[in-house]
Design a protein around this nucleic acid. Structure first.
Length: 572
RNA sequence: CGGGGAGUAGCGCAGUCUGGUAGCGCACCUGCUUUGGGAGCAGGGGGUCGCAGGUUCAAAUCCUGUCUCCCCGACCA
């Protein structure tokens, strides 16, 4: 492809609406154009990257025995009423009405449709297992679309659905997909982690999220440096210490701490560390509240509290509200409170022997408290978030490392939810009707491209992994007016093409500096540079985008050299 | 949905307070010079000033309404 004949306009300046790198670079490289909030045109250069990811996904899923189909994007409301989600799904579901005022939605996902397909097609256990997938445009009417393709409303997703005879068979399908996902993201050339996740309200025994590691990721994940354990920080387990024995308890001493309310203030005032203090938090629950106690240096795991007490949102009790109930914010302690208040204590707190807590009165704290003895704990549960550096809760040998991640895929064991509500059944070898056990498996294709850029860029622009680069090579002709140079460029172009290398040939009349900057921005893994200055000595230049390594190579050898370099970068 | 901000040429912005011929940089077109890291000079094309009302001799500018976009929060496979 000749740059001069390609639709590709790059920008020197960054459009102001873009705040994350992938969005900025996608706009500057002209990969995407916004049409409405969260809705983008995939321009030719961007589409090539998307297609690369799709190709890898198809190859790996086909290899894993999945079968591709394509379902409608517009779906009738009746199906969603059958599954119960017409009313449960909420405003994210884009509901539309045809000329007869029949209700439809634009599909945000396809459990209903695929289950409908299978219940009509599959009769016998002999036809199972079955795993159907599609790559298709979805629409979710997000409250707040942002970050370009990272959280758009319209996006391209690969969704797969497995159907099995029983739970054991479903597990096998699940792990088959788990392995396929690992191969997919490896082949995309991305650093990633599969992490354990919460199966949520739908139930089911397990689910994993696949995260691309990038400092800008929205999720914090922890992974063991020794075993395979990795989890979202919201769900990461911790190794709990054993509680201290009552014999170690001393008599607590009340001390004056005028004006010292935060953990930091109290610790400094009393000459101890945050680890020696107990943090007491008040959380609203329906009509009453929960009293939560965790070590002063720890962070509350809000997701865990919400899940354990079935709270849709986590809301702290305000200072005025607390005072109205006779509590003293800043000087709270989970002891000596009204017995009707439910006190939940983190196990780590019960291991403390000489803790500092509030005195439940103004300007006073208490030292030397032994929580295992003195606290009124109604319940003990892990309230804190795990942190980097802790012992792995699974193998107990490794250490947890912290990463930021972008969720690009999820594998999920669905169970019987849709097969039951929609009646997807088969006859087993006894001739008995059984519901199929389902799994669902998503990959955000467009989000994966965005995540690839988040993970692979520098101050000059994108650095594409060779496997998903829109073009492998930028062929920069610095002297397009010169016949010899142009002839050499043309021959390199066609020779690379014959080797299966995709080349964007910059034959424009821009000045050299412009072409270099442009090629860096666009992120081609390799640049082949031709100008009369070096060609007069029979040389062309090869530049590696990621390392900035530059080599002068004889014209006759440059095609081989470029191909070799690409293979080293993981090109297949 | 709550809070904040912005809509003026493809992109980035000034002009709005204090009403009076719509501007600048980048990009685009022409010419000359330049040519190995986003060139210089000269000339040129392109704008219903988000939209709809209103005030006024006169509205990008003042008033009212409305739409859209962005940011923070809540939410989220």
């Amino acid at each position: 492809m000749r740059r001069s004949r390609y639709l590709l306009n790059t920008l020197k300046e960054t459009p102001k609406e873009a705040v994350v790198v992938s969005h900025q670079l996608m706009l500057r490289t002209g990969m995407i154009k916004q049409l409405a909030s969260g809705i983008y045109t995939y321009m030719p250069f961007g589409l090539r990257a998307i297609r690369k990811v799709e190709r890898i996904v198809r190859e790996e899923l086909d290899r894993a025995g999945c079968i591709e189909l394509l379902m409608p994007s517009v779906q009738p409301a009746e199906l969603w009423e059958e599954s119960g989600r017409w009313k449960d799904y909420g405003k994210e579901l884009l509901r539309i009405y045809d000329r007869k005022d029949n209700a439809f939605c634009y599909g945000p996902t396809h459990e209903e449709v695929v289950t409908d397909v299978v219940r009509r097609e599959v009769r016998s256990y002999k036809e199972l297992p079955l795993n159907l997938y599609q790559i298709q445009t979805k629409f979710r009417d997000e409250m707040r679309p942002r970050f370009g393709l990272m959280r758009g409303r319209e996006f391209i997703m690969k969704d797969a659905y497995s159907f099995d005879v029983d739970d054991t068979a479903c597990d096998a399908s699940y792990w088959l997909m788990f392995d396929a996902y690992k191969r997919i993201f490896e082949r995309c050339g991305l650093e990633f982690r599969p992490v354990e996740a919460d199966s949520g309200a739908i139930g089911g025994s397990f689910t994993h999220e696949f995260h691309v590691l990038a400092s800008s990721g929205e999720d914090q994940i922890l992974s063991c440096n020794h075993c395979d354990y990795a989890a979202n920080v919201e769900r990461c387990e911790v190794v709990e210490p054993s509680p201290s024995s009552p014999e170690t308890a001393n008599e607590p001493i009340k001390v004056a701490t005028p004006g010292q309310k935060t953990i930091e203030q109290v610790a400094e005032f009393l000459g101890v560390t945050a680890k020696d203090c107990v943090k007491t938090l008040l959380v609203k629950r329906d009509s009453d509240m929960l009293v939560l106690a965790l070590r002063g240096d720890r962070t509350l795991n809000e997701a865990a509290v919400k899940a354990a007490f079935n709270l849709p949102v986590l809301e702290m009790v305000g200072e005025d509200e607390a005072r109205a109930l006779g509590l003293v914010p800043g000087y709270l302690a989970p002891m000596g409170l009204d017995p009707s208040l439910k006190v939940v204590v983190d196990p780590e707190v019960l291991a403390m022997t000489e803790a500092v807590v509030g005195a439940n009165e103004e300007d006073r704290h208490v030292k030397g408290v032994c929580p295992a003895v003195h606290f009124d704990a109604h319940q003990v549960m892990t309230l804190r978030e795990a942190e980097a550096g802790e012992t792995c809760p699974r193998c107990r040998e490794g250490i947890l490392e912290s990463w930021r991640g972008i969720e690009v895929g999820q594998v999920f064991k669905l169970g019987l939810k849709y097969s039951t509500s929609l009646g997807a059944t088969y006859l087993d070898d006894q001739g008995k009707s059984q519901p199929m056990v389902m799994g669902c498996y998503g990959i955000g294709i467009t989000r994966t491209v965005a995540a690839a850029i988040e993970q692979n860029h520098d101050e000059n622009g994108i650095i594409w992994p060779a496997q998903i680069a829109p073009f492998h090579v930028a062929l920069l002709n610095l002297d397009p007016e010169d016949e010899q140079v142009s002839a050499a460029a043309d021959s390199i172009y066609s020779a690379l093409g014959k080797r299966g290398v995709e080349v964007l040939h910059d034959d424009s009349t821009e000045r050299p500096g412009f072409k270099f900057k442009d090629a860096d921005l666009l992120g081609f893994p390799i640049q082949v540079v031709l100008g009369k200055r070096s060609l007069n000595q029979g040389l062309v230049d090869l530049k590696m985008r990621r390392t900035n390594e530059k080599r002068s190579i004889a014209l006759a050898e440059c095609v081989d050299a470029a191909v070799d370099a690409l293979r080293e970068l993981g090109w297949e």
